[in-house]
Simulated assay, not measured.
Amino acid sequence: MSLVPLIEPGTVLTIAERDYLYGAGPIRLRVDVPVPAHPNLEWVTVHGTRLLADGRQTHRVSVLVRVAAIAGRQ
């Protein structure tokens, strides 16, 4: 049985500082790897490419994100 991903690759997320661990300020990234949905998780790892305010990409990052902050965004 395969689960529908919580977030699909290519999705652009802006995540507030309070919704991810070990960061300073909001982070904007384009998701590179599907984020699996799991009903019992509070946090998930999001792998993506960090984007600047003007849309230019910088580097790949892995960010631990609160599920409530990204659930329902597609």
Rank of each mutant, 00 (worst) to 15 (best):
G55H: 07
R50F: 05
V65E: 12
L64Y: 06
V35T: 06
I70V: 11
R18C: 04
V31E: 04
P26Q: 12
D32A: 15
G23R: 02
T58S: 15
H47E: 13
L41P: 01
L6E: 01
S62F: 05
P26D: 15
L29I: 15
R28M: 12
P39R: 06
L13C: 00
A37S: 15
I15F: 12
V33M: 10
A24D: 09
L64G: 01
S62I: 03
L41A: 05
L21A: 13
V35D: 07
L52M: 10
E8Q: 14
V63C: 11
E17A: 14
S62A: 15
V65T: 11
I27M: 13
L21V: 09
P26W: 08
V67W: 10
G55L: 10
L29P: 03
E17L: 01
R18V: 08
T45V: 11
I7E: 08
P5S: 02
T58L: 14
A37I: 04
L41T: 13
L21M: 11
I15T: 09
L21W: 12
G10S: 05
G25S: 11
L51F: 11
G55C: 09
H38G: 12
Y22M: 11
R73G: 00
T49D: 05
L3W: 05
A71Y: 10
D54E: 09
A69G: 02
V44D: 08
R73T: 13
M1H: 12
D54L: 00
L41H: 11
G10W: 09
P26I: 01
G10A: 02
E42V: 10
R28I: 07
L52Y: 09
P5V: 03
L3K: 08
L52D: 11
P5A: 02
R18H: 11
I7N: 00
V12L: 03
V4F: 04
M1S: 15
L52A: 13
V65R: 10
D54G: 01
V65Q: 08
V61T: 12
D19K: 05
Q74S: 15
P34E: 13
E42A: 13
R60I: 07
T49Q: 10
L51A: 05
V63L: 14
T14P: 00
T45M: 12
P36T: 09
L13Q: 02
V4R: 13
R30L: 09
I7C: 06
Q57L: 06
V46C: 04
L21I: 05
N40T: 14
D54W: 01
E8I: 08
V35A: 05
P26C: 01
V44Q: 09
I70S: 03
Y22L: 13
I70T: 08
I70R: 02
V67Q: 07
V67L: 06
I70C: 02
I27T: 11
R66L: 14
E8G: 00
V67H: 06
V67E: 06
R60Y: 06
R28E: 10
H47Q: 13
T14F: 01
L51C: 03
I7M: 06
R73Y: 06
D19T: 04
V44L: 05
H38Q: 09
Y20T: 08
W43E: 10
R30S: 06
A68V: 08
